[in-house]
Every structure is written in C-alpha cells, then in structure tokens.
C-alpha cells in the first residue's frame, strides 16, 4: 500500500530549512510519498540531499524528488513575473509542486517541463 501525504504551503512554507528537512525525512522514512504545495529553494534542496546522505543506512536508501515550477515558463516578461510574484505574496501562495518519496518505493520520478510521472517499485523487498 502506498501512502500519499499532501502538505499545504501554509503549513510547509513558514518552516525554517532544518524543520522542513526533518518533516520530509520523518515522513519519507515512514514510507510516505509527500506532495508538497510549492517549491523548495535550491539551497534547501542541497541541504536535503546532504541530510539524506547522512542518514542512509541498511534500511533507508535515500529519496526520489522532483518539482514543477510553473513560474519558470519561457517568454515571460519582467512585468508578468513581477505581477505573479506580488499576487503570490499577497495570497500567501507558492506556485509549483514538489514530490518526494523513499527510494525503496519510488523507482523513478520522470520529469518533463510540464508533467511529473512517478514510477513505483512493484515488489518492495526489505532487508532486516
């Protein structure tokens, strides 16, 4: 059975980097696939990779992660970007989506510019 957990931006966005990473790794280690509203910063993602590497052991093999950023469409002029940024700030929204799952369950997350495909492992063998 696969458990999907949705985390709204209002819950995730205000957290500091360490709290975000703790929250992600706690859920992923419980074999949950997280769907997070919004996008993490590159620095937060690098820190997430670092913490993931530190915690890899017999049971935990790491994570699969992918994010979509609709703000990064090409041919957007400065005015469009600014308008969108102001609207998001006022509404407390963070556009985009991040999917994170345990590598023991998620085989691959295929990402194209506008879509994400998540492939899971059929037989999830675990070692003690």
């Amino acid at each position: 059975m696969i458990t999907l957990q949705y985390i709204a931006h209002s819950e995730f966005g205000p957290l500091d980097t360490a709290s975000k990473i703790r929250k992600i790794l706690r859920s992923v280690k419980e074999d949950k696939i997280l769907v997070i509203e919004g996008k993490m910063s590159p620095e937060d993602e690098a820190e997430l990779i670092t913490c993931t590497m530190e915690q890899i052991d017999k049971r935990f093999k790491g994570i699969e992660i992918a994010s979509l950023d609709p703000q990064k469409k090409r041919n957007q002029d400065f005015l469009d970007v600014t308008k969108r940024a102001i609207a998001n700030y006022l509404l407390g929204k963070n556009e985009g989506l991040t999917i994170i799952g345990p590598a023991s369950i998620v085989k691959e997350i295929k990402r194209d510019p506008n879509k994400i495909e998540l492939l899971t492992k059929m037989n999830n063998k675990r070692k003690k």
Partner: peptide, 17 residues
C-alpha cells in the same frame, strides 16, 4: 539522458544562487 532531473536542477540552481 533526460536532463530534467532534480539533481541537475538543484546543482544549477545552487550555482545560480
């Protein structure tokens, strides 16, 4: 290989930052 991997995006995003 498909260049749209999160690792590629994270590396380049960190260099840009």
């Amino acid at each position: 290989k498909n260049p749209y991997s999160q690792v590629n995006i994270t590396i380049i995003g960190n260099l840009a930052a």
